[in-house]
Design a protein around this nucleic acid. Structure first.
Lengths: 210, 210
DNA sequence: ACAAGAAATGAATAATGATTCACTGTTTAA
DNA sequence: TTAAACAGTGAATCATTATTCATTTCTTGT
């Protein structure tokens, strides 16, 4: 035997893989899973099309990894916001703000994660993603119920409403504007919009006027 | 000239067109725009593939018409519910119930109308659809604000949250279950689910515990 | 420098599905 | 009954992309 995989090679391969992942991520963030082409990703990453298939079984597998990555970031941020000081309502508000602001800053990716139709393997990841959120919010809502700052309710169902209200608030604006406003970050000042959404969400949860 | 379109022919053509529309509608209702095949629709309608193109410029045009049709039904129902007796909150609740129940009864079509990615011409119809809802709910919310039963707020934004909360509550359950629960009507008893969603929505609007 | 093994390449292939169009069948008015 | 005009047909075409694989290029240990 004359060839043995060496550290240097392992590194180089890892770098290529990383570059592929990063470019795929950018493509998805720019226009969603559906329009992300394997060929384009390869070109961006400076490798041949076939090389993608040395690192990933299939497009689906690559995308599943992208989904997982993107998801992890989002869920972590929300979990972080939920684990700060304050009563459940305050923590939930912080978490929802985090969720909404991040979604508004990257609406295409947010839409891809929440609602874009994707292949089965990616859909599986989405199930995990939904459950991660559902569990996080559910836990916080349940804590709020125990603390007494949130009235009795189906925590899982409320969590779904929260995600939906926020998602629709950004998917709606996204759809028609697409070509026109996609180039720019749409709007610098999300504050009023986010406040408006949050007021609705928190009222929906607590039934207390804000 | 030896041939002139006669009433009989006009009728026959209209029937064929109607059959195409109806079959296309069924296909979309069963699995969304994306998986509705021109060939399948033609077969269902008992005509050749090419015949579809004698009645519609393109698949996109056919689908735009389907979207418009489906949309009209939904918007009409909501408008009807909004024009009954009672104060704004009561009317809104009736309308939201109508919206939610219909969506739950036909979740695939609901998802197609609300969030499925579609071609530009269909997307245009969606814009009109969104605006129709936005205007209906907005008007009712504004009336509620004048009546004093709903506090001051951005009516358009709230309307978006309403639609989102309901949509997500049915899209979520839809996604993973797909194959498994699509055969049956999922569940006969929507009452508790709908009540739960509505509580959240009305609280979100009014900030008053239900 | 060499040969064995691996990695990279990208043009060719395969699969899918909308759309076309040359042809066949029908309807109409004279 | 005939021919002009139209309607219907569906196999063939075109377009789009993921995926493959024979070939080339690079790495490594001797």
């Amino acid at each position: 035997m004359a060839y043995r995989e060496t550290e240097k090679m392992r590194m180089r391969k890892a770098e290529a893989r990383q570059r592929i992942v990063s470019c795929a991520y950018q493509c998805v963030a720019k226009s969603g899973f559906h329009s992300a082409r394997v060929t384009t990703i390869a070109a961006m990453a400076g490798v041949a099309t076939g090389t993608i298939y040395r690192h990933f079984e299939s497009k689906e597998d690559l995308f599943a990894e992208i989904f997982r990555l993107a998801t992890q970031r989002e869920v972590d941020k929300v979990a972080e916001a939920l684990s700060t000081q304050g009563d459940a309502t305050v923590r939930l508000e912080a978490a929802l703000r985090q969720f909404a602001e991040r979604a508004l800053r990257g609406p295409v990716m947010a839409w891809s994660l929440i609602a874009e139709p994707v292949d089965p393997k990616v859909e599986e990841e989405r199930l995990a993603y939904r459950q991660a959120y559902a569990e996080l919010f559910e836990k916080a809502i349940s804590e709020g119920i125990e603390e007494g700052c949130i009235p009795e309710q189906d925590a899982r169902q409320s969590s779904t409403c929260l995600v939906g209200a926020i998602a629709e608030s950004l998917v709606g604006p996204l759809s028609p504007a697409q070509a026109a406003s996609q180039a720019e970050p749409i709007n610098d000042n999300y504050e009023p919009l986010v406040n408006s959404i949050l007021r609705f969400c928190i009222q929906g949860l607590t039934g207390t006027r804000r």
